[in-house]
Amino acid sequence: MSKTVLVTGASGFVGSHLATALVDEGHDVRAMTRKPDAYTGAGHPVAGDVNDADSLGPALQGVDVAYYLVHGLASKDFEKIDAAAARNFAAAAAAAGVERIVYLGGLGVDDGNLSAHLRSRRQVEQLLGAAGVPVTVLRAAVVVGHGGISWEITRQLVEHLPLMITPKWVKTRTQPIALPDVIRYLVGVLDHPDAKGRVFEIGGPEVLRYIDMLTRAASEEGKRMPNLSVPLLTPRLSSGWLALVTDVDFATARNLVDSMTNEVVVRDHSIQDIVPGETIGYDEAVRLALEARRQAERTP
């Protein structure tokens, strides 16, 4: 059944693809953006900013389901900023009578040792539901697709470095997921009654170390990725190194590096009961991401 759906972060990496997929499914999509006049993606642009509580009421009026795809990493105060934004959105969604919020969060076992980034993602989950609107959460690790920050770090390291000096975190296990599978899951939980108010873990078919992701991405580009392990390379030095050889700023790099010490692996496979189907393998996900980048470069 067609629904009126709001997509926050509609201009972003995941949001832009999600808005297109929802329109293709026949939903009435509102693409929330701070600059609606400049929006050229799928759906109908509406003005709204999660950091401006007064702007959210009009954007959410008449909405059945709202996708919350907003998070920040580029500020030292991102935890406080993200928490305030989630409170604003939760209150506005409840006031507007929204049936459900769908949130894309982060994988990781909450054992008291989560990084600030993953701890913030978990806090946002709770805050989004604090005003009474049911929240469906999809927790993911690295999303492999053109334009994603974590994937861009992988791609740029492979393309820029003849030799990689690796800190300890490259041995951490993760479960990357292809962008098309993330979109499939986000769309799939929209109408399913059994997804309401639940948390799901999503990932691709393989558990890999970060070093495996780098070497296999290099192989897909016809390159080798020799590496020299330096166990004493601190998070701060690792962050500076990433900021130097990629276009990711230092603050974002530091917050991502801190998260790379946490193992992020799917342990609950119940999403398969809601949205069944095979997921895309890592090598194919890399090929799709590289092809999307080539197409983007060819587009004026």
Rank of each mutant, 00 (worst) to 15 (best):
K3E: 00
T8F: 00
A19Y: 01
T20S: 12
L22I: 09
L22C: 02
A31C: 05
K35H: 15
A38M: 12
D54Q: 09
S55K: 00
P58C: 10
L60A: 00
L73F: 14
A74K: 14
A74M: 10
A84S: 13
N88L: 00
N88C: 12
F89H: 07
A92N: 01
E99W: 07
I101E: 05
Y103P: 01
L104G: 00
G108A: 14
D111V: 07
D111M: 10
S120R: 04
Q126Y: 11
Q126F: 08
G129V: 05
G132Y: 01
V133I: 07
R139T: 10
A140F: 03
V143R: 05
G147I: 04
G148T: 03
I149K: 11
S150V: 03
W151K: 01
I153D: 10
T154L: 14
R155W: 02
V158I: 13
E159V: 01
L161P: 05
P162E: 02
W169L: 08
R184L: 03
L186C: 11
G188V: 02
P193M: 07
F200W: 01
V207D: 05
L208V: 03
I211E: 05
R216D: 09
R216L: 11
A218R: 08
S219F: 09
R236K: 15
D247E: 13
T252I: 09
R254W: 12
R254H: 14
N255D: 14
L256V: 11
L256H: 08
V266T: 04
D268G: 10
S270R: 14
D283V: 13
E284D: 15
L290K: 11
A292D: 15
